[in-house]
Amino acid sequence: MATKPKKEKEQGKERTAAAAPGAFTRHLEEIAAILEWFDSQEELDIEKALEKVKQASTLIKESRTRLGELENEFEEIKAGIEGDQ
């Protein structure tokens, strides 16, 4: 059985994660929480900051991918509604 290339596999994993019910909303909430953490730091804890940056980058990337999927779905629905007029 052929295996998927690693990147596609990882991308597939990312899609699956963001596509789970409620995941997109949770991702946005987590991103907001990270930004709030940065705002609240008088003295930045470098190690924590690095960790949070990494976390946030992953969340942002997944969310953008999911947003793209949602937008495509919406375009299809919109085409269907406008076609009924």
């Binding site: 907001a32 942002i60 919406f74």
Partner: peptide, 21 residues
């Protein structure tokens, strides 16, 4: 959708600015 896109872009910018790297 446009607002979400803006929000993610803003978050990305803030994260980059605060990135110790």
């Amino acid at each position: 959708i446009a607002r979400l896109r803006e929000r993610l872009a803003h978050a990305d910018q803030v994260v980059r600015l605060n990135d110790p790297a």
